[in-house]
Design a protein around this nucleic acid. Structure first.
Lengths: 343, 343
DNA sequence: TTGTACGCGTTATCAA
DNA sequence: TTGATAACGCGTACAA
């Protein structure tokens, strides 16, 4: 068994409660006693027991992280490590630890969240995604448990503190950019339609077309999984269109998908950006290393994570404050996968 | 305040201890009482408080995950998400949660581990790396705290349970493969020399050369960071060699580095595999999508993680069992970045 | 088979 | 400024 507060108390000839106060740096303890107690702690190699502290104070200093149901594919996406780094840094600054919900499907993850929350394992939760329908969100809301979301809530936007990009504007910017390069047949390749981010981006895309006076075509809009395979499939679908109607530019909602597209186009002998321009999202590391390097909307993933943990901690410490919407800047990074229309 | 064991006890007209026993499914409780208590739990929506349980039972059902000091670059590497997925699955099967140590540098992470361990936050720890000198490992060893390592311990190999590839043999296989293709000037591009995996791979490389009767050249061995930039720098160094002495094949210790190499070679007009063959390690997702697709040694990263959490849980539950060395299989995946010597 | 009583290591309230 | 003492919610030895 390790050294407890009682051992320190005995050693320093004070009461356990006094030791506790020294740990909390309570101003009503004399400097002399503090000194004495701290020496005792050092001498004995005392470390506070977090579990006991949590039980007594009803707070754990731990944040729970919730990934979408398909956590296997989510982990694969370079988005995840970066957002995690941001979360980690934000949490660390305030001495919070990070705990992951494990589980293979949505059901398991839901149960994991309930256990975490009811079991008092965490003080708050970060949802690393935003879905159109979400049991987990509904549950947390019902419980009035502190949580923040990365992304835009589908409902209750001004009740839920969330950290998001302006995905509508970002996609509009991306689309505008391609339109200004002279492209008129611009296609949108989005991810899972159950994700709010997909919905928002699609709206931004449509809006850009509209303002440019270009008719929206349903067969120019594709939805695939946020992965390499998704990119391949997308190309297949577009190539079914008659040659004269094929898009000359693509807005792709994720770099990995874009990589898939790039490779598939390469295989069938279509040049980028010669025949087709590509603009994608996230600006992860690999986007720089593809052939050609991808033009991509940098959404500052690290900041999304960093802000999320900061906001959650605020929410835990001051639950009465109103919900906030934090917008993280985006900016277009133009590389070589996009260029002016050549024909 | 939420429902406690006492509320359930009152509701079901039994003692709190009886409820506790029902939760533990103690065989000495009659089926009738169990039934009654379970109904009460359902009725009241009872969920056990993990913190209280942890304090009483001195166990948390949480595993701690420790990344190397440079966690920012570690997170970037596609190795991380995959190993995490494995860890998560292994932990979830046994109802363990995962907690991350946060911290920006080695010092902070060390402190995080000490807090985690002394604070009783976790039942065991997984080290996701193996370094030549490691305070954290020394600390855990001194404390006799349950931990496992992914990779091969530099010291105390048969005292520490670890999950590893046979990196010596894997690199030997990779090198042999290139030698058999006719290459004689084979270079080795390794990662951080403080990592044991780098040391092991270098030994395997040397051994393969030796058995093939090829003299080892120091200037054919490079050490860079496990990232894209590392790959670029490596090419720079090799190009300083006189043309006739430049290697015709490269063994590269990481796919990301290999990607960097690939791109840099491409920029300066050197063909792969025409002029230089490349064989790399890890076989992460992007290796398939590069131009040309990378030949890579698949080290089954998921299994490394999965086995690690399984072994750690065993170790927690049966601390008296002897340490084990678990070897995860590797296999060469031949794609298009490697080919026969052409001159 | 079930209940009583205590301990786990803290924090917090109330006196002194 | 400090010390008793009672929570916090659960597990378990011992008693019944």
């Amino acid at each position: 068994m390790s050294i407890t507060i009682k051992d320190v108390a005995k050693f320093a000839n004070v009461a356990p409660s006094t030791v506790s106060r020294v740990i909390a740096n309570n101003p009503r303890i004399s400097d002399k006693t503090k000194e004495k107690v701290r020496e005792a702690m050092d001498e004995l190699g005392y470390h506070p027991n977090f579990i006991a502290r949590s039980l007594a104070s009803q707070s754990t200093q731990v944040l729970g992280l919730v990934t979408p149901g398909s956590s296997d594919v989510f982990f694969q996406n370079p988005f995840f490590p970066t957002v995690l780094r941001g979360l980690s840094e934000g949490a660390h600054e305030k001495q919070y630890a990070l705990q992951l919900v494990t589980g293979m499907d949505e059901e398991e993850i839901y149960n994991g969240v309930v256990q975490m929350v009811q079991g008092g394992r965490v003080d708050g939760v970060v949802l690393l995604y935003s879905k159109v329908e979400d049991r987990i969100l509904m549950y947390l809301r019902e419980q009035r448990f502190p949580f923040v979301m990365i992304g835009k809530p589908f409902k209750f936007v001004d009740e839920i503190t969330h950290v998001d990009n302006d995905n509508f504007q970002a996609t509009k910017d991306a689309t505008d950019y391609l339109l200004k390069l002279g492209h008129e047949r611009v296609s949108f390749v989005g991810g899972d339609v159950n994700l709010v981010v997909t919905v928002e981006r699609l709206l931004g895309y449509k809006n850009a077309l509209e303002e440019a006076g270009i008719t929206y075509r349903k067969d120019y809009v594709l939805h695939e999984s946020f992965l390499l395979e998704g990119g391949k499939d997308a190309v297949g679908e577009l190539m079914e269109l008659p040659l004269s109607e094929r898009p000359t530019a693509l807005v792709i909602a994720d770099d990995l998908m874009a990589l898939g597209v790039l490779n598939t186009l390469n295989e069938i002998g279509i040049a980028v950006p010669g025949d087709i321009s590509i603009m994608s999202f996230n600006n992860v590391l690999v986007s720089e290393m593809s052939r050609p390097p991808l033009s991509s909307v940098d959404i500052n993933i690290f900041d999304l994570g960093y802000e999320a943990s900061k906001q959650l901690i605020k929410r835990i410490e001051k639950p009465e404050e109103p919900a906030k919407r934090i917008i993280v800047q985006h900016n277009l990074v133009k590389r070589f996968s996009s260029g002016p229309l050549t024909k």
